[in-house]
Amino acid sequence: MNILLAGLSLFFLAFGIHLVIWKVHLPHHQSSALLWTFFGTFSLGVISTPLFPQDGLWAWFLPHGLLELIHVFLMFLSLTFAYLITYSALEADSPSLVIIRMIAEAMPTGLAKQDLETRLSDDILILPRIKDLLRDNLVVANGARLQLTPQGRSFIKIFVIFRALLKAGKGG
């Protein structure tokens, strides 16, 4: 029981701290700020464990021994990664969802094909994503050319290998 309660409590505590920080000031590098917030909260939680009473109600929220601590960490890690991956979907507007909202706003007459193409141009759909890659240091501008950084290369290699394993195309 304590594994379940400890893992969920730490995760929701980290999530709450993240929301407060984001309301005060939206960080520039949001992904790394999220990682620091979540893993910082977990680390502080683990370090402060000896300060809590080891019996009574607190015993339900504290891991006992290394194996339980590892189990709590796995739960925290999996929930954190699930949230991080959802968050990255919140940062950028999904083109499919933008299309749907634009059509919904144009109901009942609907939206003309040409209107969609005019409003969702490279300036809206592609150039901001290139800026994200530059901001996140996955790509660097070498004169007029965009080139992968070592992090960018390592990152995209994972997808290249996986897509080859599936025998799937480039996607997008």
Partner: peptide, 21 residues
């Protein structure tokens, strides 16, 4: 891998030899 624009953009740059404008 299937739909993300950033992944596709990285892929195109990865497939080029000297980078892309």
């Amino acid at each position: 891998g299937e739909t993300a624009r950033r992944i596709r953009l990285l892929r195109e740059i990865y497939d080029s030899d000297v980078g892309l404008t």
